[in-house]
Design a binder for these strands. Structure first.
Lengths: 333, 333
DNA sequence: TTTATTTGCGAAACCGGTTTCGTAATCATA
DNA sequence: TATGATTACGAAACCGGTTTCGCAAATAAA
């Protein structure tokens, strides 16, 4: 359909290979010929076919980003970070959404085997499924986890200091006078949750408080979370502080408190992991642990490109840890 | 690298063409041979090369979705709608983010010419730039606008009843007793803004109120919007009602009111176009005009696939209009 | 001046599929 | 039994680039 190298070649009375090399800026071609080709190509608005080129070169110039969700403010910031470094590497970023569905995640990774991308950045989807499809993928092409990662899969990863963040969140509540702090958890086999929980436990220990199992609430099932939380907060002796380990649970906690007419922070103080730009506009303004989403995206992409340029697997998977910050707002005052 | 048709062919002592046809389920191949091939292919975990196949077939199986932003809750919902129909058509959806930067948008559309996608869904980026790159693209492959569209580009479009929505928002404020209503506008050459503004004007007219130019505030420049709004609301005679024509302006209005200690809704009532799931958790809960984002995504994708299957341009560009709904909350009570 | 290098370009193979076309064998029809 | 139509498959062209290799002419070294 469009204009091809072949047409340029015949028009300029050159060989196809000559045109190709000239456009690639090869030194095999004399400057005069090269310029003649380049100018002509531009004049006819030549656009190379991405598929032909990928087929022969055996590289796509694409990296895939596999995300659970995109409404989550963390991920949309992270995408920007990723794109910022991909662009200057001349790579395309293709975003795939799993909606936290491991089936979809698997289908996506499976599709990558058809060669659509050169490398993958991913934040894993929650669920109980096996991780073999991820391992297989990691064996085929470079993979970098960011934020959410599985521990049983060997791959580079970019994380935040989750133990410390969990610690800080809990410590903050304790300092504000909370007597009993609930930890809203999701899938416990997820690294970030484990670490945040560990931080929670460490903080309690440092304050001489016991860790009570019934204060660690499993909110793995979206359908029942609302009720779970509701019963928790209507208990005779409910927690007066909540650490919400992911953004969605933070918002859920707000919903339930609003529904129960539980005043935040008077009845219960809330601190949540969140990158919501509008945390300050919530009722009440939310104290957050905010992750450096943009920087994490950049770091992850950088690790990926290192791997792509190396073409050889690092002997020991790289790990980069970035700090989160606690923004104190009215929900804990 | 991987396992190719050629390998299967030589292993099974068949021609490559036979294998290809067998895998495609061609009737040219006997059921026995077909099954033999299919089974063997599965046993060796054959994955066809997407690029080879696209190159020859001259179709990619991809549709591109070009969005200004993804943090905006409308777009993340719309993506889900798009994906839901793309999946059942066996298409991949590739998401491209412009960050409301027309340069990036242009670069993205330009890239499409290398044949990465078969069709495009887009919500245009704001700005003063020309739209010729969009027109060129529309001339090449099917394009469907959704939500944000340019009027000077001929293409199918999926919109909401923006005049009506603007009317309803304004009417709602008037009924609540507002005397002077500001309309926060962005790029006025954008269809949805024009229409929402028209609705605003109609409502004022129906209530026998004058349309005052100084009540229509242009918030086109992100950098100055905050100050613009601040001076508006610190005027001697400020508006006591605000219609915010896009989500980002709604949140901005909240920020400014909070900063100025202006009580919502007592000092000023606010209604905003927004799909934020957490509108009810804001301080105060926000009255919104909510668009059917998911359905719009579905509708847009459906139009696109119609065009792709038709292979011929519709003589008159299709148009689909879906209704929005007003959710009344505390910000206007 | 002869031999060795370098330079500039073309021919052809190649990436991995898809599609067209040809043909031998089988089947149906007269 | 002779002829026409199917059936089942293979050979080869093809999609549009990239890369290898070969070679003649120009240049450098001996």
């Amino acid at each position: 359909m469009g204009i091809t190298i072949k047409k340029i070649a015949s028009e300029l009375k050159l060989a196809v290979s000559t045109v190709s090399k000239a456009l690639a800026g090869s030194h095999e071609i004399s400057p005069e010929t090269r310029q003649r080709v380049v100018e002509y190509a531009r004049s006819v608005d030549y656009i190379p076919n991405a598929y032909a080129s990928s087929l022969r070169k055996r590289t796509t110039g694409n990296i895939g980003v596999v995300l659970p969700e995109v409404a989550d403010s963390f991920f949309s910031d992270a995408i920007n970070g990723i794109e910022s470094v991909a662009r200057q590497k001349g790579y395309h970023v293709i975003i795939y959404l799993t909606h936290d569905d491991q089936q979809k995640e698997q289908a996506i990774l499976n599709d990558f085997r058809s060669g659509r991308v050169d490398g993958v950045l991913m934040s894993v989807s929650l669920g109980d499924g096996s991780h073999t499809h991820i391992e297989e993928m990691a064996a085929q092409k470079p993979l970098v986890f960011f934020d959410r990662a599985w521990q049983d899969v060997t791959a580079a990863r970019v994380l935040t200091d989750d133990v410390e963040s969990g610690y800080n969140a809990t410590h903050h509540l304790l300092e504000k006078g909370c007597r009993r702090i609930g930890f809203l958890s999701v899938h416990k086999n997820l690294n970030i949750i484990q670490q945040r929980l560990q931080g929670y436990k460490n903080a309690l220990a440092d304050h001489g408080r016991p860790v009570r199992d019934e204060d660690i609430i499993d909110c793995t099932h979206p359908d029942t979370n609302y009720d779970t939380l509701k019963t928790l907060l209507t208990n005779p002796n409910p927690p007066d502080g909540l650490v919400c380990s992911v953004e969605s649970l933070t918002l859920l906690a707000y919903r339930v408190c609003h529904a129960l007419n539980l005043a935040i922070p008077n009845a219960v103080r809330v601190v949540g992991f969140s990158n919501l730009g509008i945390a300050a506009l919530l009722n009440p303004p939310l104290t957050t642990i905010t992750q450096p989403a943009f920087a994490m995206g950049q770091a992850a992409a950088t690790l990926l490109f290192n791997a792509l340029e190396r073409r050889t697997k690092a002997d020991v998977p790289e790990l980069k840890i970035l700090p989160s910050v606690l923004h104190e707002r009215a929900s804990t005052q």
